[in-house]
Design a protein around this nucleic acid. Structure first.
Lengths: 219, 219
DNA sequence: CGCCCCGTTGACAAGCCTCAACTTGAGTGG
DNA sequence: CCACTCAAGTTGAGGCTTGTCAACGGGGCG
């Protein structure tokens, strides 16, 4: 790790069209990768939690085709590209770890695609919330089934392809069903098994077994 | 390349839950990777054309979480996993090429996510058709803006998250606008610039510059 | 106090799905 | 050669889901 920097809430970390010279690693905070269209609507591509790389792919594809910004004040580490090249060329074992992270990116993207293509908006929101709980837990950010979720309803909608107004109505249904509680950014899944079934959620696609094999069974 | 095998139309190449011992490379034909839900609906994750790997990720994640099947009679090459490990450990230059393919997978998945999340169903179909033309062209399967598209309307719908009936209506609008013609599986883009604009299509995300830098300008 | 972000609610319109029936064309077998 | 079947495409009617527009409420903060 050569250097690190703090980014404020809503501050852009890398903008679309830029060619960063470092790979960015989230050390603290919560980061969003997204694209926006001509009308100003956004589609979130993924969230990055502490321990996640933001732009490993810019070691090969120079130009960013989307924007990365901080959802909360975040500490970001900078790794020069040549360090990454060095790993790929001289440290095959570490390189496999990097490949793992690309693989998990692919797996999450595929699951999000299935989410958008195959599930109702109610299921989509439930599925996203299940994923975020598991990933927050893997990052050590949870207290049982509770964690700080720094997203507005509008932002949640941008991840699952629905408007803010509709996100509100879907959220109310999940609350009324007794599946979750969510107040002042404190989020809690009240009925984990109910949520998993409702959302058709199976954490296998997150491939946590390589990060921490004890995670899966006690949740 | 150790061995190869032919698969019939609609034949499964790898099924969900299996743990293949080889990486599969499409040599001839047209292959689809997809997931299905409890109701039997499918979501296509990607199409693989000649030159594409089907399951590079199973070198690390053993178990398939989706199914791969042949859309037309296809010739598939089998590469043992240990050959891939050998590349990663002893041939960093080749390993970078493999990483490129993972990167392009990520880039296509992101674009498909944007397609589902941000665009109308008309734009989604147009965008998919633009992508398939460019990729078919990169695989040497095109004659100008024409190529053999072995997909039914129902199958196209499975890639962009709409039903067969609605795909039909969307297709008719594109035909009526004079953007495309499509008869007996022969597909042609009549108005390439019109389609690109209509679909908000930019081929950059396919990263063809590494495969063949002369492709982009003459199309 | 006043402002602004966020959440909430209602009314209405548009997009897409479902169901069902019909058409077309390519095979297949008598 | 004709009748039959089947997959794929086409069309219409009706309904559910989601978007759009607009207004209002609550809470944090200058």
């Amino acid at each position: 790790m050569v250097s690190e920097k703090f980014f404020a809430r809503d501050e852009d970390i890398i903008r679309q069209g830029e060619s960063p010279k470092h790979v960015y690693l989230v050390m603290e905070g919560w980061v969003s990768r997204f694209r926006n269209n001509h009308a100003g609507k956004k589609q979130v591509l993924n969230y990055q939690l502490p321990g996640d790389f933001c732009n490993l792919h810019t070691t090969l594809a120079k130009k960013m085709d989307h924007t990365i910004s901080a959802l909360v004040p975040s500490k970001i580490g900078f790794i020069p590209h040549h360090e990454i090249y060095n790993i790929y060329e001289n440290h095959p074992h570490l390189a496999q770890s990097l490949n793992w992270t690309s693989l998990i990116d692919i797996s999450i993207l595929q699951e999000w695609l299935v989410n958008l293509g195959l599930r109702s908006s109610d299921q989509r929101l439930a599925h996203l919330l299940c994923e975020l709980l598991i990933r927050a837990r893997a990052a050590g950010l949870t207290d049982d089934h509770r964690f700080e979720l720094p997203l507005t309803q509008a932002q949640l909608g941008e991840a699952i392809g629905i408007t803010q107004v509709h996100t509100n109505r879907v959220m109310q249904r999940l609350l009324k069903e007794g599946l979750i509680t969510f107040k002042n950014k404190k989020f809690h899944i009240d009925d984990w098994n109910g949520m998993k079934e409702y959302a058709d959620f199976d954490a296998l696609y997150l491939h946590l077994e390589c990060a921490d094999s004890s995670l899966e069974k006690d949740i």
